[in-house]
């Protein structure tokens, strides 16, 4: 049995399990073998000084939902892609927009924004006044710059 920091009930009637970062992977493995075969959602929430990562797990057979939460101060969480392949794109998206590093992810690249984008838009301290332009290079790859470029 994995150590759980706190267990509570959410407003939506779903069990919330709070664990520490070290215990995340053992707990997730246990959940997976308990029949939670569908990882519905991975969410990262910027709490200004730390980041919450919330996993919504679902069991197709029992139709049961469980929410797992971890809190990290240094923006690094272990990746669960090895347990649920569907976490692959979810974690890439959260890395792209919130800036959490998922350790052990096979291909942690930006998903929506082009390579070279400065900052992570869903951070609370993201500077909205700075305009960044997306350009396309010769091979059709996108990259971001601060000047408008030649219009592409």
């Amino acid at each position: 049995m994995v150590d759980i920091i706190q267990e509570s009930m959410g407003k939506d009637g779903r069990k919330i399990i709070q664990v520490s970062v070290e215990n995340l992977i053992p707990l997730m493995n246990e959940m997976r073998s308990n029949g939670f075969d569908h990882l519905s959602l991975v969410t990262a929430i910027d709490r200004k000084d730390s980041i919450d990562v919330v996993y919504h797990l679902h069991s197709m057979d029992r139709n049961e939902y469980v929410v797992v939460k971890v809190n990290t101060k240094n923006y690094v969480v272990p990746s669960v892609t090895g347990i649920w392949p569907s976490a692959n794109w979810d974690e890439r998206e959260q890395y792209d927009l919130v800036g959490v590093k998922f350790e052990g992810h096979p291909n942690l690249k930006r998903l929506f924004l082009p390579e070279g984008w400065i900052g992570h838009p869903l951070r609370k301290d993201y500077d909205l006044s700075k305009v960044q332009y997306v350009n396309m290079d010769e091979d059709g790859e996108d990259y971001a710059t601060f000047d408008a470029g030649d219009g592409w």
Binding site: G10, K11, D12, R14
Partner: peptide, 20 residues
């Protein structure tokens, strides 16, 4: 206040909205 995860069946599949 609080957080809520609502899931609905859109035409494409399970559409979930998680509001904190």
């Amino acid at each position: 206040d609080g957080e809520y995860y609502a899931r609905t069946e859109s035409s494409k599949g399970e559409f979930g909205v998680y509001i904190v």
